[in-house]
Design a protein around this nucleic acid. Structure first.
Length: 233
DNA sequence: AATTACGCCAACCGCCAGTGC
DNA sequence: TGCACTGGCGGTTGGCGTAAT
């Protein structure tokens, strides 16, 4: 069984076989095509590199914008994100995110994980004497609506001098993406569209946690190329 | 010119859900 | 119902090219 980089001959065998027989059973394909590879490797090579409809090359600015927006909504659902970028693969999007966009966001002071401005506030744990003896680890939760959660648990939130001025200027503690109740519809990607990525973008999305959604639901959405992307209260 | 550090990206790995028996 | 198999996904790794020292 071969591993590592694919040779031109291997690529050609795979292309020829799929052109002739289509994307059939990946497990049996290698033997039938005369390849010393596992089916999984063949599938990956075809999907990520050999498929004729792949765009390749640098990402356009509108593609990058869309990736950022979709990532803010979907998180690391690379296949879903890539499904909205014609000619791009999940692997490509993922690599581009990790090597370019992530760094770009960080340099702008945005946390790439949650798309919020990075808070420079320091959180000081409460002194032990302040902690009531409660069942939840000794921290007494007060019920002060004017305080953040950490403050309610007795933590002190302070800013450094430098950060203080930032806070004054741009309300640095504000959320970059507050309450995203967007009304967007994401249409089936159109291969004929030159700037397809920002067209027909409309879907009903409630920016909430998706912990209750099953992977099955997500995969079905992607598989069906559903014109409406439903997310997940 | 040689060495080291870094970035990019193709490919691999492990896990999970669906399906068929 | 349980098991084996398969496809698909996201995270991670390794190799290569380039920049920096």
């Amino acid at each position: 069984m071969n591993k590592g980089a694919w040779s031109k001959q291997e690529d050609q065998k795979l292309i020829d076989y799929i052109n002739k027989h289509g994307e059939v059973c990946w497990r049996t394909l290698p033997q039938a095509a005369g390849l010393l590879r596992c089916g999984k490797s063949c599938r990956l090579r075809w999907i990520n590199y050999l498929r004729p409809d792949l765009k390749r090359g640098n990402f356009a600015e509108d593609e990058e914008d869309l990736i950022i927006k979709l990532h803010a909504l979907l998180g690391n659902r690379w296949s879903l994100i890539a499904g909205r970028l014609p000619g791009r693969t999940d692997n490509e999007v993922k690599n581009y995110w990790n090597s370019h966009i992530k760094r770009k966001l960080i340099s702008k002071g945005i946390d790439p994980n949650n798309h919020r401005l990075i808070s420079h506030k320091k959180i000081i744990p409460p002194p032990m004497s302040d902690c009531s003896k409660s069942s939840s680890g000794g921290l007494l939760k007060t019920n002060n609506n004017n305080k953040s959660n950490v403050e309610n648990y007795g933590y002190q939130v302070v800013s450094s001098d430098e950060d203080e001025s930032n806070n004054n200027n741009n309300n640095n503690n504000a959320l970059l993406l507050p309450d995203l109740n967007l009304d967007l519809t994401i249409s089936i990607p159109s291969s004929s569209s030159s700037s397809a990525v920002n067209k027909n973008l409309k879907s009903t999305i409630h920016h909430q946690h998706e912990s209750n959604s099953s992977r099955r639901e997500r995969n079905l959405l992607a598989a069906n190329n559903s014109p409406t992307l439903l997310l997940f209260q």
